[in-house]
Design a protein around this nucleic acid. Structure first.
Length: 420
RNA sequence: GGAUCUUUGGCAGAGUUGGUCGAAUGCACCGGUCUUGAAAACCGGCGAGGGUUACACCUCCCAGAGUUCGAAUCUCUGAGGGUCCA
C-alpha cells in the first residue's frame, strides 16, 4: 500500500512517480478526492461521537444523583440517530478509499529507468561466457526425455498441461539443487525456514497478490485459503502485525517451497518443457530490514543468487528492470537471466525485489526506531535463489554433450553421493 | 466432527454486580540521581492509529453483528489457541 499521507503532503511527487508505472492521472485524482471525502466524513462523525460520549457520561452522573433522566435520554437518542448516519457515511468513504488504494502499485525508485516493457530493461553485467558448442545444442525437453529424467506426458495425464514428472537423476537433481541452494544461502547468513504452502487471504493481501491478482492463484474450494504462488508470501507474512524488536533486524531468511500458479495470462508461452509450470520448486530469500540498510541487503541478495549460478558454472546476466516491467509491489527489481544454449537466449531464473515499505504497510510489519522512538514500517525484500526447475533446465542445456549425455556440476556431486 | 475453556499494550498478566478503564502490576525500554565507569538501588517517563501549530477530540482490549443512554466487561456468529471426546 502506498502512503496515503503523501496524497496530502506531496501529491505532485506521488503522482509523478506512480505515473511512471502506468497509473493514470484520473485514478490518482480519484484517490486524492476519496481521501478528502473520508477526512471530512471522519471529522463529522467524530464530532457527533464526542457529544454522545459526553452525554452518556452525564447520564451516569444523573443516575447516581437520582435526577430525572428522561429529558437527557431524549437528547441522546436524537443525537444517536445522527451518529449512526455519520458512521455509515464514514464507513462507505473508508471502504471506497481502501478498495482503490489496495489496487495501486508501489512507487518505483527514482533510479529505476523508464521503459514500456521487458525490452527496455538494462543489462548491468554478464557473468561467465557461454561456451561454444561444436554441435547444435538441444533444448532441454528433448534432453530430459532422452535421458529419461522428465516425463511431460504422464504429468499431463495426472494433472494437465504444464505439469511434469521427474525420474531418477532428474528427480535426484531437483532434490540436490534444493539442498545445495539452501546450504549456500545459509552460509550467507540466511536462516532456513520451512513454511506452509497454503495461506489465508490476509497473508496474500499483505504481500500484494490480493486483491488484484486473485485470478492467478489456486484457491481452496470452500475455504478462504490459497496455494502460495511464491515462498515470499508465507516468509514475509511471518511477521504480519508484529512490532519487531530493533536488535532483531535485519531478519534474513531462506526457505524452499513449491509454488503454484495458474499462469492465466501466459497462454501459448513456453508451452513445452518446464520453463513455465503450474507447480514448481523454488528456494526463496526474504529479508526484513530498516530502510537505511535495505539497499545493501538488496545487493547482497543479488550477489548470493548470482554466486549460486557461478558455483554451478552457469553463464548469466543481471538485468535492471525498467518501470514497465516492474511488479506490483516492487520499488526496484533486478532479474538474473541464465544462458540457455538450446534456446539461444537468456531466460529469467531469479527476480530480486526491494518493496521498501509497501508490503510492510499492508502487512503492518514495524519496528520501534531507536532515534525517533516511533514505530516505523520495515523494508521487505524478496528474491529467488533460485528457481529450481529452471536451474535444472540450464544445467541440461549448458552441460550437454554431443551424444546427449549431461555433465553433473562438480558442486552438486556431494549431494548426489557421487563424490567430488 | 462434538463438548468445554481461552484471545487484553513489545512480552507477561490483572480487570465479568456494564459508567470514574485505554486499562492495575511485573519485565523490557527511555531519561535522571548515585558511581571513576558499569551494575544494583531510587525517582520519572513509557500501548497503537488518526487528528491538532499545540491542546481538545475520535478510534482500537482477536474479527463481525447485537443488547444498552453507555461494553474490554452481557448475547450471537466467525477466526486463532488449549483441553477432553469421537
Amino acid at each position: 500500500m502506498i502512503d496515503l499521507k503523501l496524497l496530502q503532503k506531496d501529491f505532485e511527487g506521488l503522482s509523478t512517480s506512480l505515473m511512471r508505472k502506468g497509473v493514470s492521472e484520473t485514478l490518482l485524482n480519484d484517490l486524492k478526492e476519496k481521501n478528502e471525502t473520508l477526512k471530512i466524513a471522519k471529522a463529522a462523525f467524530e464530532e457527533l461521537q464526542a457529544i454522545r460520549n459526553a452525554m452518556s457520561k452525564e447520564f451516569g452522573v444523573y443516575k447516581r444523583e437520582g435526577k430525572d433522566i428522561n429529558e437527557l435520554k431524549a437528547r441522546i437518542e436524537a443525537n444517536n440517530v445522527k451518529v449512526d448516519a455519520a458512521l455509515e457515511v464514514q464507513r462507505e468513504a473508508q471502504i471506497d478509499l481502501e478498495t482503490l488504494a489496495m489496487t495501486v502499485p508501489n512507487m518505483p525508485d527514482d533510479s529505476v529507468p523508464d521503459g514500456a516493457d521487458e525490452n527496455e530493461n538494462i543489462e548491468m553485467k554478464k557473468v561467465l561466457t557461454p561456451k561454444a558448442f561444436d554441435f547444435k545444442p538441444k533444448e532441454h525437453w528433448e534432453l530430459a526425455e532422452e535421458n529419461g529424467w522428465i516425463d511431460f506426458e504422464r504429468g499431463a495425464k495426472l494433472s494437465g498441461s504444464r505439469f511434469s514428472v521427474s525420474y531418477d537423476m532428474g528427480a535426484k537433481l531437483e532434490r540436490a539443487l534444493i539442498n545445495f541452494m539452501l546450504d549456500f544461502n545459509a552460509k550467507r547468513g540466511y536462516h532456513e525456514v520451512s513454511v506452509p504452502h497454503m495461506v489465508n487471504r490476509t497473508a496474500l493481501e499483505g504481500t500484494g497478490q490480493l486483491p488484484k491478482f486473485e485470478n492467478d492463484l489456486y484457491k481452496i474450494e470452500g475455504q478462504d485459503m490459497f496455494m502460495i504462488p511464491t515462498g515470499e508470501v508465507p516468509l514475509t507474512n511471518l511477521f504480519q502485525g508484529e512490532i519487531i524488536p530493533y536488535e532483531q533486524l535485519p531478519i534474513k531468511m531462506t526457505g524452499y517451497t513449491s509454488c503454484y500458479r495458474k499462469e492465466a495470462g501466459a497462454a501459448g508461452r513456453d508451452t513445452r518443457g518446464m520453463i513455465r509450470q503450474h507447480q514448481f520448486h523454488k528456494v526463496e530469500l526474504v529479508c526484513i530490514t530498516k530502510s537505511e540498510t535495505s539497499d545493501t541487503i538488496f545487493n547482497e541478495m543479488i550477489e548470493c543468487a548470482s554466486d549460486i549460478l557461478t558455483a554451478l558454472e552457469l553463464p548469466h546476466r543481471l538485468m535492471q528492470l525498467c518501470t514497465g516491467d516492474l511488479g506490483f509491489g516492487a520499488a526496484k527489481t533486478v532479474d538474473i537471466e541464465v544462458w540457455l544454449p538450446g534456446q539461444d537466449q537468456y531466460r529469467e531464473i531469479s527476480s530480486i525485489s526491494n518493496t521498501r515499505d509497501f508490503q510492510a504497510r499492508r502487512a503492518k510489519i514495524r519496528y520501534k526506531d531507536k532515534e525517533t522512538k516511533k514505530n516505523t514500517f520495515v523494508n521487505t525484500l524478496n528474491g529467488s535463489s533460485l528457481a529450481v526447475g529452471r536451474t535444472l533446465v540450464a544445467i541440461m542445456e549448458n552441460n550437454q554433450n554431443a551424444d546427449g549425455s549431461i555433465d553433473i556440476p562438480e558442486v552438486l556431486k556431494p549431494y548426489l553421493n557421487m563424490g567430488a
